[in-house]
């Protein structure tokens, strides 16, 4: 434990009339968390500003508690909407770390589930399954990817509705123990909320993930290769910029995921090129992705 909270707790709530927000801020290392987020995630401005707001809320909440002003814990259930590859899952996985360090949740863990993990196959199978997932997630974050699959209006005997009801109840009763994050494509999630108004109204934060711009995608490509301990040569960077421009206009473009796939294929071609050449290689050759590795893509052929 750091020194600051100890000092803050010395005076009893009744005698305190002021609270030092700067000391609280320093003790919570919120600044560091937000900086890290800025560094590691490219773009995503609305998402980052929402996280900043939540951080501020939790800090003020802490300050209010120190002055003895009673507050219910804020509801932090969230929905993440956006096109494929815009970072919904990545951010959700980080959210647990962020909320944990802000002191809102007790454990730094994310339990990631989909329809299969919640909905059973026969009568009486769903409730235990859903409860099992919820119990595992307690104290941390429950991340439901493609949440709209839970509700299948075309099949009235579908057990998804049962899972939703249990979820709703736990989201309400265990607000202090669990943060639920739903993710999915915007239009489908909106249909889901309109057919399950209870779910929509229990989620306080609807965060929309915008598509990446081409320069952001190039940044992402740079971060990805760096994380794999590769690097793009100057020619390859230019080729990548070209590639992104072309790929964005094509169908089934999935933002960062498409970039990831393209880089995966470039790695494959690089390996193939080195393998074909044979002979003695240095670390530099093993690390560098050349222009030719990217230019060989099918995208340039069209």
């Amino acid at each position: 434990m750091t020194a600051a909270p100890d000092i803050a707790q010395e005076a009893s709530p009744e005698t305190r009339t002021t609270v030092d927000l700067d000391a609280l801020y320093a003790a919570s290392n919120i600044g560091e968390i937000l900086d890290q987020l800025d560094r590691e995630l490219v773009g995503l401005v609305p998402v980052k500003s929402r996280i900043r707001e939540i951080a501020a809320l939790l800090l003020i909440d802490q300050a209010r508690r120190q002055l003895g002003l009673a507050t219910d814990p804020p509801s932090l259930h969230m929905s993440f909407t956006g096109n494929p590859g815009t970072g919904k899952t990545t951010v959700a996985r980080r959210m647990a770390g962020i909320l944990h360090r802000l002191g809102y949740i007790r454990r730094d863990h994310v339990v990631s589930v989909t329809r299969d993990d919640l909905v059973g196959q026969y009568i009486g199978h769903t409730a235990p399954k859903t409860k099992e997932a919820l119990k595992k997630a307690m104290g941390g974050v429950l991340f439901i990817d493609e949440a709209y699959y839970l509700y299948r209006p075309e099949n009235e005997r579908d057990y998804g509705q049962e899972a939703i009801e249990i979820l709703l109840q736990v989201m309400e009763d265990h607000r202090a123990d669990l943060v639920v994050i739903l993710a999915g494509y915007k239009d489908r999630l909106e249909t889901f909320f309109s057919s399950n108004p209870g779910m929509g109204s229990r989620i306080a934060h609807h965060v929309d993930f915008p598509d990446f711009r081409s320069d952001e995608l190039l940044d992402i490509a740079g971060t990805m290769v760096a994380a794999w301990h590769y690097r793009l040569s100057d020619g390859a960077t230019a080729a990548m910029r070209d590639y992104i421009e072309r790929r964005m206009d094509q169908p089934r473009f999935a933002n960062a995921r498409s970039i990831r796939n393209a880089l995966d294929r470039a790695r494959l071609r690089q390996a193939n090129r080195l393998f074909a050449k044979g002979g003695i290689l240095d670390a530099d050759a093993l690390q560098t992705i050349e222009e030719a590795d990217i230019r060989a893509s099918r995208v340039f052929a069209q």
């Binding site: 007790r106 454990r107 863990h109 409860k131 919820l134 119990k135 595992k136 997630a137 307690m138 104290g139 941390g140 265990h174 123990d177 669990l178």
Partner: peptide, 14 residues
């Protein structure tokens, strides 16, 4: 035994 539960809130449910 609850080998996969990480937090007391989950055990309290049981």
């Amino acid at each position: 035994p609850m080998f996969d539960i990480a937090d007391a809130a989950g055990v309290m449910m049981e």
